[in-house]
Design a protein around this nucleic acid. Structure first.
Lengths: 141, 141
DNA sequence: TAAATTTGTAATAAATACTATTACAGGTTC
DNA sequence: GAACCTGTAATAGTATTTATTACAAATTTA
């Protein structure tokens, strides 16, 4: 999918849950803030739930943080959303009769894996609490 | 675009140029090895040319490395292909009436920028020569 | 307890983005 | 000058995303 979209929506949702902890927001309400369809919000909340980041109850309004935002890193979100594979996945089917064609995927995989590890290590350094802090700071002036 | 596709094709093309330096390959020939349309090959070669990685001459067959593969990093390719913006670009238009909605893009940008810098630093450590070496090694057994 | 809400999914439709193809001008080679 | 090639634009065909509709199952509320 448009790579950052699911991810951004997920961060947005978690930020809302952290910013208004006592409110019980419906997926409709959240959808209004995020600017997407409520079903998409429910789908993404489902991913966050399966990753153990939020809890919900079928039929009961609202989603709730499973643990405080200080204990949720951006990497946790990234993984919850299942973005990992997508980033550098190669979809072309090179010609197997060409020595370059039949081996290039493996060679690229080596570099990409390392690059991705570096990136993820960086994402692990930021918590959702910091994101929310930055959002609030940006909204002051 | 399917994120890795352009990138993979570009690496593939450069690998071919490095592997068969004396041959003058037409875009048709390259297209055969890569498994995509010749026009796409020409387009990507155009990007590599504008980035100063290869040289071509209109009407004359073949593309040639502007400098040896040891002096071309994977990051050079990544940038030539103009992938930088795409990776984490946010396309949604969050609700500006919500404090989270109107500030989230900036906050995400901060994290993403750092993550991307780490990733790019890693990509800069690998040269195209190493890629080709790995391709050849993989083809031996 | 019946009506109104809400979540969780699936299925379908609409919108976008990607890749391939066609076409052709301008240049080269033989 | 005939055949071939690059560089680009325009168009068409696919595939992928996003939105919408629909509805069962659970919960709340009146």
């Amino acid at each position: 999918m448009r790579i950052a979209s699911r991810f951004a929506i997920a961060v947005h949702i978690l930020s809302l849950l952290g910013t208004f902890p006592e409110e019980s927001m419906t997926s409709d309400w959240i959808a209004g803030s995020v600017g997407v369809n409520a079903v998409i919000v429910r789908n993404i909340i489902g991913m966050l739930r399966r990753a153990g980041l939020v809890t919900t109850q079928k039929g009961a309004a609202g989603a709730f943080l499973a643990r405080p935002l200080q204990q949720i890193t951006v990497l946790d979100v990234y993984r919850a959303i299942g973005m990992e594979d997508d980033l550098f996945s190669i979809h072309s089917r090179p010609n197997p009769n060409c020595p370059v064609g039949r081996n290039i995927q493996g060679a690229l995989g080596t570099v990409f894996t390392k690059a991705q590890q570096e990136m993820e290590a960086q994402l692990a350094k930021t918590t959702m609490a910091q994101i929310v802090r930055e959002i609030k700071a940006a909204d002051k002036p």
